[in-house]
């Protein structure tokens, strides 16, 4: 398996504030990677750096062998990177169908159409003409995922799909993941919910205060180690003892 995404020694942040310290992760084509971590660990910042929404301070991001450093955010989509942003961020002036269509703005060729998205999320069928703002949280999340799929991604970044949703809805949404990967997209999933992450991922990376505190195949990781890396309790972590440093 060749690495689809290779992040090495990535540092990034906001203004003077450094949120990521020399992060290195690899996502292989066809493998699902889960990034877990507590509030403020830097998960969203990592995804935003990969999509180009926050600048890379140092280090490199390679996608399918190509260095993305000089590629602006809107052209990374054309390369096949797409994101379901935290908080969904649908466009309120657009109805559901338009939100899906705008996801395909770049006209990257591939299998996804509005019809196929509706096949994966049948609950959207009666909602296509509705303004996106009147939908329930789960419906909005389905639109957000569908919108990302419309870009025909090779890599789809999902940021806390489960945020604020009932467990039964979360299960429904994650049930679509195999169909998504079957259409050729590799998934990188960010979750705070460790159990959810472990159940969908082949590989797991845990972030703690902007650093990788644990990584490995999800099947081979010990639950206690994960908890320690997640909360930074010193056990088998690199950054756990510097609590409060930033």
């Amino acid at each position: 398996m060749s690495p689809l995404l290779e992040v090495s020694e990535l540092s990034s942040g906001y203004g003077d504030f450094r949120a990521l310290y020399d992060i290195s992760i690899t996502v292989n084509e066809g493998e699902t990677l889960a990034v877990i971590g507590a509030n403020g660990a830097g998960k969203t910042t990592l995804l935003r750096a990969i999509t180009g929404l926050v600048p890379t301070w140092s280090g490199s991001i390679r996608f399918d062998g190509q260095n993305l450093l000089s590629v602006p955010a809107h052209r990374r989509v054309a390369e096949g990177i797409t994101m379901v942003p935290e908080g969904r961020l649908l466009f309120p002036s657009l109805n559901v169908r338009e939100n899906l269509l705008v996801g395909g703005h770049g006209r990257r060729p591939g299998p996804w159409t509005v019809e196929r998205v509706v096949e994966v999320f049948p609950l959207l069928a009666p909602l296509l003409g509705r303004p996106s703002a009147v939908l329930s949280g789960g419906e909005q999340q389905a639109v957000a995922i569908g919108r990302a799929l419309m870009a025909n991604p090779r890599l789809i970044l999902l940021d806390e799909v489960s945020l604020g949703l009932a467990p039964v809805v979360v299960r429904q949404l994650y049930a679509a993941l195999p169909q998504i990967t079957a259409h050729g997209a590799t998934a990188l999933v960010v979750e705070q919910d460790i159990g959810q992450a472990m159940s969908v991922a082949d590989q797991v990376v845990c972030l703690l205060e902007g650093r990788v505190s644990l990584e490995g195949p999800s099947a081979g990781l010990d639950r206690a180690d994960i908890t320690a890396a997640y909360f930074g309790m010193g056990h088998r972590t690199e950054a756990g003892s510097n609590e409060g440093q930033g």
């Binding site: 602006p72 809107h74 052209r75 338009e98 705008v102 703005h105 990257r108 919108r147 870009a151």
Partner: peptide, 22 residues
């Protein structure tokens, strides 16, 4: 398609960039 991109950008330029809109 362009008009849709105008409206998306008006709503939220940074998310619009995620859609491949310049």
């Amino acid at each position: 398609r362009m008009g849709r991109a105008f409206r998306a950008t008006a709503d939220d330029p940074s998310t619009a960039r995620l859609m491949g809109i310049n």
